[in-house]
């Protein structure tokens, strides 16, 4: 596939992504009305309006931030799919990042676009399958899943995920990770109520990490430029 046909693939991804997203939007917003027809009751639209103004605004702002931050990580296909299927922070983002690193794909490249889409689509299908099986076997599974002994395991799925990912990413980037980790720990220690807004705290933490990474990047680029300069001068003299 040459550049032109990959562009075609990409254009197709945007067309399909938009069409499927709009259909899913209509289905999701329409479902309560359809269910209402069966139940013989329609949604109270004034309560929905008031509810949106009081709680929905927070999710609206959060969605803007999620879109701006995660779209560059996910690319076109992965982005459309991830926003359709949800569970971004606790699954789709780490899954896509892990897949990208496994293959060594660079962001913004066709490889990254393919890998991201493959990983998000697979991850979404696994969730759909696990939930479908879980719902089908809800009665026999419920005692196991809700057993008191196993509760700590299921309550700590996200720490287990981030523990593994932390080792993988921190080991080669300790200088970048140290400051956000210390700052976030101090903030959460001094203002414990922030625990309820962890997903919002990703922004300053990520911003700080990007800032530090940029400083190192600039330093490295400067050193490289100086080295090249020296080599050129040495070449000129000889």
């Amino acid at each position: 596939m040459n550049n032109e046909s990959f562009e075609k693939y990409n254009a197709g991804t945007h067309i399909l992504g938009r069409i499927f997203s709009v259909i899913t939007l209509v289905l999701l917003v329409g479902a309560p009305f359809l269910i209402g027809l069966f139940l013989g009751a329609m949604p109270d639209l004034s309560a929905v309006g008031k509810g949106f103004l009081s709680v929905g605004i927070i999710w609206f702002v959060s969605s803007i931030v999620e879109f701006l931050v995660y779209t560059p990580m996910l690319g076109a296909g992965g982005g459309y799919l991830a926003f359709i299927t949800g569970n971004l922070i606790n699954m789709k983002i780490p899954c896509a990042i892990n897949a990208r690193d496994q293959v060594g794909a660079k962001s913004g490249t066709p490889e990254n676009e393919i890998i991201s889409t493959l990983s998000i689509a697979t991850s979404s299908l696994v969730t759909i399958l696990v939930l479908a099986l879980g719902v089908l076997l809800l009665v026999p599974l419920q005692p196991v899943l809700q057993s008191e002994v196993l509760q700590p395991a299921f309550e700590n799925v996200v720490p287990a995920l981030f523990g593994a990912m932390a080792y993988k990413y921190f080991r080669g980037n300790l200088k970048i990770a140290a400051a956000p980790l210390v700052l976030m720990s101090l903030l959460f220690i001094l203002v414990p109520s922030l625990t309820g807004s962890t997903s919002f705290m990703i922004i300053p933490s990520g911003g700080l990490a990007i800032g530090i990474a940029f400083l190192f990047y600039r330093q490295k680029a400067k050193a490289l430029a100086q080295e090249t300069d020296l080599h050129t001068k040495a070449g000129d003299k000889s």
């Binding site: 931050v69 560059p72 990580m73 922070i89 983002i93 780490p94 990042i97 660079k106 962001s107 913004g108 996200v158 720490p159 981030f162 523990g163 990912m165 932390a166 990413y169 921190f170 980037n173 970048i176 990770a177 956000p180 980790l181 700052l183 976030m184 720990s185 101090l186 903030l187 959460f188 220690i189 414990p192 922030l194 625990t195 962890t198 705290m201 990703i202 933490s205 990520g206 911003g207 700080l208 990490a209 990007i210 530090i212 990474a213 940029f214 990047y217 680029a221 490289l224």
Partner: peptide, 27 residues
């Protein structure tokens, strides 16, 4: 000019993980 995009993505993810681990320490 050398490309910073990849490092920015990794750094953003490091920030994400740091926020969560920080919340566990704070908790």
């Amino acid at each position: 000019q050398g490309g910073f995009g990849d490092q920015a993505m990794s750094a953003m993810f490091i920030g994400l993980v740091s926020a969560y681990i920080g919340s566990y320490i704070g908790g």
